[in-house]
Amino acid sequence: MDELDILKKDWNKEENQNFPKLSYNDIYKMLLKKSSSTVKWIFIISILEFLFWTIISFGIKDNESMKRLKGTDSETVLNVLTVLGYIVLCYFFYLFYKNYKKISTTDNAKKLMENILNTRRTVKQYVGFNLVFVVVSTVVVVLIEFNQDTHLEARVHEAAASGHIFMFYSKIILITAGILTITITILLGFYALIYGILLKRLNKNYKELKRMDL
């Protein structure tokens, strides 16, 4: 008897055929479970992203231009905006976490489809909020600076005196718009890359579920 036949004898012994028996429902659940890992990643990445921005904001707290804001209304407004931003972000974490919990415990295809759609909506709102937040806070700070920064005020008067006030304002607006466009493009690129991939996967799973449910 060659080696493989010895092995075959053992392989087919009854005690080596005892595997945990999965029920119909266990198998059905297995087919649904794929979404939960994607949603878990959405949750994890949103936290990492949050940490990233927090570290960045601490990093720039002490630089020159931030110091100039000290004592002006901008500082107060920025602080209010930051706190507001964090509150909204925390709310989004909560939503992401809730979605994750829901999806990982669902064993009903209809519910799972609803949850997938919910998650997709939450992610879109999250991205939308972040973009609007960047635009609003930039515009607000620029406006306040114009009213309060003595250095800037002097430049405005100078420009007014020499008759170039229109040029001066157009320049400021163009520069602000330029910086905003670049920031938003980078942010959009980042979101499209990371959340885009995850959402695409969710969408694929959603379509599969839908086909299965028809």
Binding site: F19, K21, L22, Y24, I27, Y28, M212, D213, L214
Partner: peptide, 17 residues
């Protein structure tokens, strides 16, 4: 896959797992 197919698939897999 329709519901019926899905059922038959899971039942077959259950039997041959």
């Amino acid at each position: 896959m329709n519901k019926e197919q899905e059922h038959s698939f899971i039942a077959l897999l259950e039997r041959h797992q």
